[in-house]
Design a protein around this nucleic acid. Structure first.
Lengths: 227, 227
DNA sequence: ACCTGAACACCGTTCAAGT
DNA sequence: ACCTGAACACCGTTCAAGT
């Protein structure tokens, strides 16, 4: 039990980022404060600033780490051989797999304002898949924008409940306003909603994500062939 | 100049929400603190809590006010007559018009976790347009999710620069990593980027928004007709 | 019913100082 | 080179108190 007692491994940027991800995974993103993170690393808060410029830089690094995680699962960088549509779909669904392991990640990505080299390289590979698949630069450009956050495996819904597993957040009061929601009530009586196992938000479940993704991919294919 | 000197109009939920929107418009969303907002209203911070439960409720109210703004521009609630595709497109581009007047709004909407009656009614009308246009409940449901935040007029990009008018944020260092970005560099040499007048982020400009929107609408139409 | 003042428990971050 | 302690300028929010 006194195995490694005083041999505190020195901090490093990588250790800090890994600890930040672990902390967010375990206690939620709101628990990721400089003080908490330092505590988890057995260190004072101010020590973090030696390895990371400030909290924004910490979050940038966290996102970079997640993008690297995606690329590792795909076996590294580089445009793969094979059909563009399949490659792109596969890549994006792999990205989604990483997001599902870190459900707080989309909310962090949404707040980033600086484009990092890692993210740029990820996007370059996506664009490369399109261009090598026959897209013009112009159509490839449109395609990247049309995909938006889907390129990283998540879809921005109109709102996300605090606890993804608790749909009653917005549902409890739904009965109050039901009379003024004829179409939604009609739909809900007929359509099952949400697979709790593959969900990144109220409605961003696997089925809906793939529906929207395929809608875009099919549309892009048609516009490419039309050229 | 001493026209209305001591006759301080009493606070109200509406005045608080309107002042919050004005403050964010003028000084940016990060300036919207309870203390600042109170100051702008000539009141102490704690007075706000009489009209609004807390800051989250304030932001919920702000979003509701913006949605109402959209509906006012459209001439009220209710499913309009006419072709579904045109109605939906028109509605969404109107929503986008409101977002462009309040460029901070998307970032606030993204953080909402409670579904308000106002937002539900807005969505009900969108769904109504689809269903009256011939969509099944199931396909209408898929369509709403596929649209995601586009239903409110914005598209989640992979990152958004701090100052929308300053693309150099991410571009300054682009030259450093250029060698590892063959496709992006090739594209940028050929494709013009961003219309600064109609932009909600790095790339969410009017052209790209409409491209993505039409991609989705065309795809949905095909899937509906296939039924 | 509506507004205030002082206080509390947090943030991120600075700076000079330790080893 | 790496880490710390005390302090600063902010947050949102409580509670008891004023009118």
């Amino acid at each position: 039990m006194t195995a490694q007692p005083e041999t505190r491994t020195p901090l490093s940027r990588e250790r800090v980022l890994a600890a930040a991800i672990a902390l967010a995974d375990e206690q939620g993103i709101e628990a990721l404060t400089m003080r908490n993170l330092a505590g988890a690393l057995g260190v004072e808060a101010m020590s973090l600033y030696y390895h990371v410029a400030n909290k924004e830089a910490l979050l940038d690094g966290v996102v970079d780490t997640l993008v690297s995680e995606i690329e590792n699962e795909l076996g590294g960088l580089g445009v793969p051989d094979g059909e563009w549509k399949e490659s792109l779909r596969n890549r994006i669904l792999t990205a989604r797999g990483v997001m599902l392991q870190h459900p707080w990640a989309p909310s962090v990505i949404e707040t980033r304002t600086t484009m990092t080299p890692t993210l740029l390289r990820y996007m370059d590979t996506l664009l490369g898949i399109l261009v090598e698949g026959g897209f013009s630069n112009d159509l490839g450009h449109h395609a990247m924008h049309a995909l938006g956050s889907r390129a990283l495996g998540f879809n921005q819904e109109l709102f996300a409940p605090s606890d993804p597993s608790d749909n009653d957040d917005g549902m409890a009061m739904l009965s109050d306003v039901a009379p003024s929601l004829p179409y939604i009530m009609g739909m809900l009586s007929e359509v099952a909603h949400d697979d709790p196992d593959s969900t990144l938000g109220w409605c961003d479940d696997q089925t809906e994500f793939e529906f929207g993704l395929d809608l875009l991919l099919d549309g892009l294919e048609q516009r490419m062939l039309r050229t």
